[in-house]
Computed example of a mutant assay.
Amino acid sequence: MTIAPDQPGFRELVFSDFVRYRPGSSPSWLKVVLRVPSVPGLLASLILRAQQRLFEKGHGRLADQLRTLGNVVVGADFGAGMKVGTGFMLAHPVGVTIGFGLVIGDDVTFAGGVTCAARYYDDKPGRVQEFATIGDGVLIGANAVLVGGITIGRNAMIGANSVVLSDVPEGAVVMGSPARRVGTREDA
Rank of each mutant, 00 (worst) to 15 (best):
I3K: 13
G9P: 02
L13F: 03
F15S: 06
D17G: 14
F18N: 04
V19H: 02
R20G: 11
R22N: 12
G24T: 06
S25V: 11
L30P: 10
V33Y: 05
S38E: 11
V39G: 08
P40V: 09
I47E: 03
A50W: 08
Q52N: 13
L54M: 11
E56K: 13
K57A: 14
G58D: 14
R61Y: 10
D64L: 12
Q65E: 15
L69V: 15
N71T: 11
V72K: 09
G75Y: 02
A76Y: 00
A76S: 09
A76G: 05
D77Y: 11
V84A: 06
G85T: 09
G87S: 07
F88D: 04
A91N: 06
H92P: 04
V96C: 04
I98P: 03
I98W: 03
I98G: 08
G99E: 02
L102M: 07
I104P: 04
D107P: 11
D107K: 15
T109M: 15
V114H: 00
A117G: 11
A117I: 09
P125K: 14
A132V: 12
G137M: 02
A144V: 03
A144F: 00
L146A: 09
L146S: 04
V147I: 14
I150T: 10
I150Y: 02
V164F: 00
V164L: 01
V164S: 01
D167W: 01
V168F: 01
P169D: 12
A172H: 04
A172G: 10
S177Y: 07
P178D: 05
A179I: 04
A179T: 05
V182C: 03
G183N: 03
A188H: 09
